[in-house]
């Protein structure tokens, strides 16, 4: 794997240039401490926020945070690695059921249940990752869609999930500070992953699979890795969802849920963490914000998707390099090369 680093950084036009940072910032204990400090700060802020903001807005924020964790996973699969998935809700379902079964039937601690939910989903991510070896583009999309439908039907028929009646009796264990911390941790983990050697390799799979293979990137390995990690995030998000609503049914994780998650990623800007977060915020809040339109709400929602795609086809933040923009605004450095390619043309 040692060849990957050199080959990939050459092959990818969008790979970030090395940053000029003080040497002490690069030490991992320093970074870990900074990260911990960030989490504590997030916790403190949201605890305070929790006291101030009304419960309704807090509830929307909470679902936004859960969705961010889930869509970041999808962004890794579809946005970064270029593998179009129409079945992300299946991983969420697997994580939700696994975590719920862990806390309700097995009486495991909540944190462990969340982790296990994520891991079980990741396992299925690996299983689903294998077809990607042979499929690409829309064929892969329909295979993932089929996988999600199969998961839904299985959940409807299994005893352990209580079938269509749904799984109830789950304790409410989720609050805003917890979700906020996990969401921030998810963003940090994704940023770290995308800027690592693995992330660059994944990007190279999206940009040009053949070129990536020729440069020595084990594309199979990175595709499966993307599915596993993406599914893990969805699984954790699913566990959070189950312990928020306290009741889950197979129909909660249907095709429309997958479509909604994909819309969030594409709307914000494929392959961009900031874009995914923004898209998720917008689309989680949109149904609530559009409430005043009453019956016309979903009509406007559909039309908004079309209009936004026409005017910002690369997504809200597509083609905008946030870090670059911030740096330029602060005059901290010269503008880097323009990234012209926008995610989504992969394969």
């Amino acid at each position: 794997m040692s060849t990957v680093d050199n080959s990939v950084s050459g092959a990818v036009p969008g790979a970030p240039a090395p940053r000029r940072q003080p040497a002490w910032l690069k030490l991992w204990p320093v970074q870990a401490l900074l990260f911990l400090a960030l989490l504590v700060a997030v916790w403190a802020v949201t605890e305070a926020l929790n006291l101030v903001i009304p419960a309704y807005q807090g509830q929307i924020l909470l679902f936004t945070g859960i969705n961010v964790i889930i869509t970041l996973g999808l962004n890794l699969i579809t946005g970064v690695t270029g593998q179009l998935s129409l079945g992300h809700a299946a991983f969420m379902a697997i994580g939700a059921y696994a975590a719920a079964i862990c806390t309700v039937s097995l009486h495991l601690p909540f944190a462990l249940a969340l982790l296990l939910g994520g891991l079980v989903a990741a396992l299925f991510g690996v299983v689903l990752g294998f077809p990607t070896l042979r499929l690409s583009g829309d064929y892969l999309a329909i295979a993932t869609l089929g996988f999600a439908e199969i998961v839904r039907v299985v959940n409807t028929n299994l005893k352990i999930t209580n079938g269509a009646i749904g799984y109830y009796g789950i304790q409410k264990r989720v609050d805003l500070p917890l979700v906020a911390m996990l969401a921030v941790a998810a963003v940090a983990a994704m940023a770290w992953l995308e800027n690592s050697r693995n992330g660059r390799a994944m990007r190279s799979v999206r940009e040009d699979e053949i070129a990536a293979t020729a440069s020595g990137v084990n594309t199979t390995f990175y595709k499966i890795q993307a599915f596993a990690v993406g599914a893990f995030f969805a699984g954790v998000g699913g566990g959070l969802y189950a312990h928020t609503t306290t009741f889950i049914q197979p129909t909660d994780f249907g095709f429309l849920k997958s479509v909604e998650q994909l819309s969030m990623v594409v709307l914000g800007g494929m392959g961009s963490i900031a874009g995914t977060v923004l898209g998720t915020i917008v689309l989680t809040a949109a149904p609530e914000l559009l409430r005043f339109m009453s019956n016309y709400r979903m009509l406007v929602y559909g039309a908004t998707l079309i209009v936004l795609m026409i005017f910002r086809p690369g997504g809200l933040l597509g083609g905008v390099d946030l870090r670059d923009a911030v740096r330029r605004a602060l005059m901290l450095g010269r503008s880097r090369t323009v990234r012209t390619s926008v995610g989504g043309d992969g394969q």
Partner: peptide, 23 residues
Amino acid sequence: SRNAGRLSALISAIGASIFLSTL
């Protein structure tokens, strides 16, 4: 549009689908 990938078209199609069924 120069910048529109196939996924943008897919999302636009999904928007059209939601619009029409709600209509």
